[in-house]
């Protein structure tokens, strides 16, 4: 086991290379997830700001129809 991590004394170089590679890929994945979430929230907020009246009209219409249903 120690032998594996030691890599013949070159462990620093080998793990430095592999660690940076997969570390950065992991950071990219997390960054992509975060930016997707942030974009969804931002656009959702923007849409609600832009069309509060439409949304209100739509929701009252929905409530109205459900009220008349037997």
């Amino acid at each position: 086991m120690m032998e594996f991590f030691n890599q013949g004394g070159y462990g620093g170089y080998v793990w430095g290379a592999f660690g940076m590679t997969f570390g950065l890929l992991l950071i990219e994945i997390l960054q992509l997830r975060g930016s997707r979430r942030a974009t969804l929230i931002r656009i959702g907020r923007l849409l609600r700001l832009r069309a509060p009246r439409q949304a209100a009209a739509a929701s009252s219409r929905r409530q109205g129809t459900s009220g008349t249903q037997p």
Partner: peptide, 11 residues
């Protein structure tokens, strides 16, 4: 090339 050649697999 000693063990460090394994860097080839990401390089």
């Amino acid at each position: 090339q000693k063990e460090y050649y394994r860097i080839i697999f990401v390089h």
